[in-house]
């Protein structure tokens, strides 16, 4: 009985702690975006962060996009050729990548590559008192460190997602048209006939904006809120990847239901 009460108590504490963490995360977001540093400095800080988060993630995004596109091309061909409708391959590749795989896979990779690096970097700065010393120098780390990282994440992921989608469709084209011999004209024309810019492409970009926001927010918060020890940093990095991935997939369902759910 006593054990049960203790567990109940533990459970209650966990919930309170989670709520408190959400509160701190919201506060971090508001405080860092409210006081964005002046425009001259933010540009150079942003460029550095876009390099860290965007450019350095480019290789893994391009390679993954290529392979995923090629696999869909191959699988799609096998299924569609059974109905004699290989010509719909372009449509299938483009829609599945633009709507779902592009935004989701790019965001998952981004969380693993850039998100975990962000958490580790900020956690390290906290552990080695760099954030505290900055604060003592009269420089607000929320403005100087957190804000540019958040903004860079918001900018980088949509760009990475668009690159991922283009490369993925190109990979599908390589396999479908160049290797398996689907007629090139019908590959593109079927794709263009079925892909609607305002709906499919644009909604994919909206998704990636939302994912970029969530992943960077989680990553930055976990780093800033980590316990200032080596163990604390490694825990925070794990949390970033786990929480981001769950949040991406859950948000993807919600967004898909909102965007495409009515027909």
């Amino acid at each position: 009985m006593n054990n049960f009460l203790m567990q109940l108590n533990q459970f209650r504490n966990n919930i309170t702690e989670s709520l408190a963490a959400i509160g701190r995360a919201a506060l971090l977001l508001i405080q860092s975006l409210w006081f964005i540093p002046d425009s001259k400095k933010i540009i150079s800080l942003l460029i550095k962060q876009i390099y860290q988060e965007g450019v350095l993630s480019l290789l893994i995004i391009v390679l993954s996009g290529l392979f995923i596109g090629m696999v869909i091309g191959l699988e799609g061909y096998n299924v569609l050729s059974g109905f004699g409708s290989e010509s719909a391959l372009g449509q299938m590749i483009a829609l599945s990548i633009l709507r779902e795989l592009g935004p989701v896979v790019a965001a998952l990779l981004f969380a693993g590559r850039a998100g975990s690096a962000l958490t580790a970097e900020i956690g390290h700065m906290k552990t080695t008192e760099q954030l505290a010393s900055m604060e003592m120098m009269g420089v607000d780390p929320l403005r100087r460190i957190i804000a540019p990282r958040l903004l860079a994440g918001f900018i980088s992921l949509p760009i990475l997602t668009m690159i991922f989608s283009v490369v993925g469709i190109w990979g599908g084209y390589l396999v479908g048209v160049r290797w398996l011999g689907v007629y090139e004209g019908s590959f593109w024309s079927n794709m263009q006939a079925s892909v609607e810019f305002g709906e499919d492409v644009f909604n994919g970009i909206i998704k990636s904006l939302v994912f970029g926001f969530i992943v960077t927010w989680i990553a930055v918060f976990q780093g800033y809120d980590s316990k200032p020890t080596s163990l604390g940093i490694s825990n925070a990095t794990t949390k970033t990847v786990v929480f981001s991935s769950l949040a991406i997939l859950a948000m993807d369902f919600i967004l898909t239901a909102l965007m495409f759910g009515d027909h």
Partner: peptide
């Protein structure tokens, strides 16, 4: 990187959605 993003956007618009 930003340029590549812009090109990707244009490709998505013109080549892929046939806009």
């Amino acid at each position: 990187f930003l340029l590549a993003g812009f090109i990707a956007f244009v490709v998505l618009a013109l080549k892929i959605s046939g806009l």
